[in-house]
């Protein structure tokens, strides 16, 4: 499972835009790029969900 972050403008921080399920990194890249194509982002990155270290619970 992968968390997708992106930003539209250089002065903006990255923000969470969604998640994708993919078996490997290459496929996750394709899914993130094609599913979350609602803007012309200046940057998009993905992280493995299980790499997150939870500091507080929602």
């Amino acid at each position: 499972m992968w968390e997708v972050f992106a930003r539209r403008k250089f002065e903006e921080p990255l923000h969470h835009v969604g998640t994708v399920a993919a078996d490997d990194e290459r496929l996750a890249q394709v899914y993130a790029r094609t599913i979350f194509n609602e803007f012309s982002w200046v940057e998009m990155v993905i992280f493995r969900r299980d790499s997150a270290v939870r500091i507080m619970e929602s």
Binding site: M1, T19, V20, A21, Y31, T34, I35, F36, N37
Partner: peptide, 16 residues
């Protein structure tokens, strides 16, 4: 059509 498939992916992924 690509949008619709993206929306389906989002909803099924939440179900996972």
């Amino acid at each position: 059509i690509q949008d619709e498939l993206g929306h389906a992916h989002i909803a099924y992924r939440l179900m996972r």
